[in-house]
């Protein structure tokens, strides 16, 4: 059952065609990766799904219904969560507060009840906190719970980005280069986490990634993009050995290799 479908999506920035007639679908419960050289349009695809951009042509469907009419802040309520490549955390807040913002789409209280901090709001807060604590346990962020983002190392911030997206209890998780800037051990952790997210939590994952070890280890299917166009789709091994992909990465005359 296809959870997310992109159909003939095209996006132009003035004369530059960032995404050129791209179509693919992500099945429920699978881990789907987008790979390709820089500037291939991968993050742009994410931004289209997040509704930061409107496609020039084409349709994007989630669970069968087109989401093109939605605003970017309505997307999380569908169950679509995302991380950002260049970490967009709330620097002046603690890790806990960042994660709690992730619960915003589940907010049931309104302005008046919050001003008076009615018992219903208090109960809500406890519930949100409980969910966030589970995410903290899963990603082992206990030590950083009350620390301000501004003082945290890069690797930890990446994990907090992931945690915040998970806190929204999504159906599909869009990970934008989750392993970029991470050390080998941290990338290993990321591989395990993506696997756990898929198997234990049943969350579908759509991932943009350069690190082929993560892609090969965790993905079910891979789509390679270059210059906004689709190059090849299949398993990680199939895509890596596809001649068009090799050419895009290395130019003609060369062999594909693991990063």
């Amino acid at each position: 059952m296809s959870l997310l479908t992109l159909e003939n999506v095209t996006l132009k920035f003035g004369g530059l065609v960032a995404v050129n007639n791209v179509s693919f679908h992500v099945g429920e419960g699978e881990v789907f990766s987008l790979v390709g050289p820089n500037g291939a349009g991968k993050s742009t695809v994410f931004n289209l799904i997040s509704r930061f951009y409107d496609p020039f042509e084409g349709d994007i469907r989630f669970q069968g219904d087109s989401i093109l009419k939605m605003r970017s802040d309505q997307v999380p309520s569908l169950g679509i969560a995302r991380t950002f490549q260049n970490i967009e955390l709330f620097e002046q807040s603690t890790v806990l507060q960042n994660l709690l913002v992730g619960r915003h789409r589940h907010r049931k209280s309104n302005l008046v009840s919050e001003i008076f901090f009615a018992p219903s709001v208090r109960d809500e807060e406890r519930r949100h906190r409980a969910v966030v604590e589970e995410v903290i346990d899963f990603l082992e962020l206990q030590a950083f719970r009350d620390k301000y983002i501004a003082g945290l190392p890069y690797g930890v911030r990446k994990v907090v980005e992931l945690a915040r997206a998970l806190a929204t209890e999504p159906k599909i998780l869009l990970l934008d280069e989750p392993a970029s800037g991470l050390s080998v051990e941290e990338t290993q952790d990321m591989i395990f986490w993506v696997e756990d997210i898929k198997k234990q939590m049943g969350i579908t994952v759509l991932m943009v990634e350069h690190d082929m070890s993560l892609v090969a280890a965790a993905s079910d299917r891979v789509l390679a993009l270059a210059d906004g166009k689709e190059l090849a789709i299949g398993t990680a091994a199939e895509v890596q050995s596809h001649p068009a992909v090799i050419e895009a990465y290395l130019g003609t005359g060369g062999r594909a290799s693991d990063e």
Binding site: S50, S72, P76, S77, L89, F90, S93, V101, G102, R105
Partner: peptide, 13 residues
Amino acid sequence: RDSEISAQAMGVN
């Protein structure tokens, strides 16, 4: 205040 873009991505109108 800290990041309009990710606030939107978390569902803040």
